[in-house]
Design a protein around this nucleic acid. Sequence first.
DNA 1: TTGATTGCAAAATATTTGCACGTCA
DNA 2: TGACGTGCAAATATTTTGCAATCAA
Lengths: 146, 146
Amino acid sequence: MKHTFDALCEKLHEKAYKLTPQREVILRAFIEDGEGHLSAEDVYNLVKTRNPDIGLATVYRTLDLLAELDILHKMDFGDGRSRYEFCDREEHHHHHLICICCNKVAEFDDDLLETLEAVIARKSDFKILDHDVKFFGLCKECQNKS
Amino acid sequence: MKHTFDALCEKLHEKAYKLTPQREVILRAFIEDGEGHLSAEDVYNLVKTRNPDIGLATVYRTLDLLAELDILHKMDFGDGRSRYEFCDREEHHHHHLICICCNKVAEFDDDLLETLEAVIARKSDFKILDHDVKFFGLCKECQNKS
DNA sequence: TTGATTGCAAAATATTTGCACGTCA
DNA sequence: TGACGTGCAAATATTTTGCAATCAA
């Protein structure tokens, strides 16, 4: 928790960006939120309780910044809005299980995908830098709904 | 090619939908286009040469319809617009390789992912119905640019 | 005939940008 | 102090929707 702020300060300093209350409170929203997968509007609403004057544009700009600094990872679950979570949780081997019934997003850890990346690298001339793997289906609760 | 139209007619009939020139010409755009991965605007532009009076809203409505009929598959490459390709090409084991430099989309066939799905099904209580796998990186041309 | 379908324009949604003002370093 | 950052409103971009006119079955 503390080290996340320290990392922010350091990375901001490196690129001559400034530490502002808005940036701090937005990062705190992610630290305090257990769920992850926050959208810009989610963050905006969380942050407004502590900082009612913050603008939505600032939230967007800050999320971009935090993604550029490799603190947050921007992702897309196909519902028309971008979502963000901490990069370090995205250690390249956790995948998202998206329930098409209740829209909950669960996670699954696995590194089998590295095998697939190795196959692709060998068979094609494509240099893989990142991947995005989503599984759509029914979560436990929705399976039992009938 | 012919069978695609027949499939359309049959599926339309089943649900009491009508076969209109607009629907026909939009489907034809996909048949005649080799590349695939067409966006609504791509389709609109292709179709306007034969049917200059068509409206963009009709294109959107028809793409939704064709997706509902399992003729097209709606997908999202994270560039802020939806793209569509024939369902039968999406036989659950071809993945997309998206170049982060030139935005070209290549494809890669593999069924290794079925192994991963089996692992997930066994270890979690999630019933997988579909998946979406994208790899981001540099295509051959862009690797040789710098 | 008649309900589905269309084209148009307006609305909705998510995100970005210009700009005057404010603030961190 | 001065460049960076912010809030607001307006602009974009994509997709959706209301509605009167049109068309397929």
